[in-house]
């Protein structure tokens, strides 16, 4: 399990490493074990995504199609690239005049990371950013099967949560007026929008 693995790595790996004295072969073998996805019994513990020509081609295609992604998703992709975390919010209004600039920044950051890829594995920030793009297209095209290519090895729990959220978003247009009323205090607890604004912004999801 992940908690057990975390405990072993946190408490035992430093002791083990401290006892090694210039044993480069063992260190090299240990590095291989830590990197190799086959070292982890469960799929949910796979840690890195190998970079293949197919993966790179898929990233380039996704970057070419960034123009078709709305501002909210673009901002989220950029956040992943710079490693900034934030609580998801129902509503976000980026300055529309900066959209073109944002697309260029995202493309440039991705290409810089790709140019620096070492050891043939996807860096975490790029993998998470591309997963955001993937999630957006899944949501937009209403298909879980849009891409068999997964950029980041999310745990089974996280992948299941993502699918639950997608299913919930797809159900939104079917909600009756009364149900929407119930949703409002949850999504907009400190009402910033008028009723119409709320419904319009909800439709954008």
């Amino acid at each position: 399990t992940r908690p057990l693995l975390r405990e072993i790595v946190t408490y035992h790996l430093p002791c083990y490493l401290a006892k090694l004295d210039h044993e480069d072969v063992i260190m090299s073998e240990l590095s291989e074990i830590l990197i190799n996805p086959g070292s982890y019994q469960s799929d949910s513990l796979s840690l890195v995504t190998p970079v293949s020509p197919l993966l790179l081609s898929s990233i380039n295609q996704a970057l070419d199609r960034l123009d078709g992604i709305p501002d909210q998703a673009l901002v989220a992709v950029n956040r992943k690239l710079i490693g900034k975390t934030s609580m998801p919010k129902f509503w976000h209004v980026p300055r529309s005049s900066s959209r073109g600039h944002l697309i260029e920044i995202v493309r440039k950051r991705c290409k810089m990371i790709i140019a620096r890829i070492e050891e043939g594995y996807m860096p975490k920030r790029l993998a998470k950013a591309m997963s955001m793009v993937n999630l957006y297209w899944k949501q937009k095209l209403r298909s879980m099967d849009i891409s068999q290519l997964e950029y980041f090895p999310f745990s089974k729990e996280t992948a299941s949560l993502q699918n639950d959220v997608l299913n919930a978003l797809w159900l939104l247009p079917k909600l009756q007026h009364d149900d929407l009323k119930l949703l409002r205090p949850i999504l907009d607890p400190d009402p910033k929008f008028r009723k119409m604004q709320f419904r319009v912004s909800l439709r954008k999801y």
């Binding site: 790595v9 790996l13 430093p14 490493l17 401290a18 240990l30 590095s31 830590l34 840690l47 050891e119």
Partner: peptide, 18 residues
């Protein structure tokens, strides 16, 4: 000592303990 691990291995360690 941990710096002797390769970058990929360090990335794995960081992910495990994060």
């Amino acid at each position: 000592t941990i710096n002797k691990l390769s970058n990929g291995a360090l990335q794995s360690v960081a992910k495990i303990i994060s």
